[in-house]
Design a protein around this nucleic acid. Sequence first.
DNA 1: CTTGAAAAGAACTGCCT
DNA 2: AGGCAGTTCTTTTCAAG
Lengths: 153, 153
Amino acid sequence: MSLDLDATDRAILRALSEDATLKASALGRRVGLSQSAAWRRVRRLTEAGILGPRRLDLDLEALGFGVTVFLGVKLAAKGRVSLEDFERAVSAIPEVQTVEHVLGLYDYRLRVVARDLPDFERVLRRRIMTLPGVGGVEANVLLSEERRPGPIG
Amino acid sequence: MSLDLDATDRAILRALSEDATLKASALGRRVGLSQSAAWRRVRRLTEAGILGPRRLDLDLEALGFGVTVFLGVKLAAKGRVSLEDFERAVSAIPEVQTVEHVLGLYDYRLRVVARDLPDFERVLRRRIMTLPGVGGVEANVLLSEERRPGPIG
DNA sequence: CTTGAAAAGAACTGCCT
DNA sequence: AGGCAGTTCTTTTCAAG
């Protein structure tokens, strides 16, 4: 299924995950190909589904959201609440950036942003704790974060 | 510092976080502006630092990395290992996609990808558990994930 | 903010090696 | 598969209402 990539493909993936706005010409220069060859490779990788949609990272801090908290949520074992109910309710909270359904100590991991800690407390008390079926919540406040390209080298 | 955004700005941010490849003309159509007006707003938001770099999401599953695990890492209290040492070592592991320094039950949260569970066990035993200063590790396996635009509405 | 237009540059196509 | 040349499209800038 996963078509095989040569070193040039991997170089393209590495370059594009750093800067998705790279033009085919600049990309080609960087990996040692002509503009059209680079462009054809990008199209091939896109059609293979390897290059996903170009997403835009908003600087939420510049927008006044300086607090990011990761919540580990354990659903109440007894309250036979469907996962769908929980997911629907959590998706309606604007401050929730990511909803991850996981297997382990928690059932869900949420990435929540807020303007400051008082604002976060409001979100936690009025939105999170009132979600259907919540059994326990554990929190970690983000101090700093580093994203890396992943195992494409 | 954070310049105020009107409803149109927020619409632009919402549209672009869904699809960062949107052309200024299509964007203008979507938010009810002319092409040049939309383009000027995008430039203004970019210069204000709100629109970050366009990153490209790789479909790691299409590349054969079907397993994603979140690790909560607690450093050993005694072993006076500097955070820098830990961060440097963890950054050298290709399978680690994200390193988050957090405050709470854990000291670090790691997003780790692997080809399958045996491969993950290899990474865990040979790379993660041998990191300098690791006191305890807790794992959650990703089942599904939903990303949302965040509180820009 | 809008329209219109012009210049620059990138995307995309066919043909050739 | 890669390179070249050409066509089509968008971007980017400017002038004027």
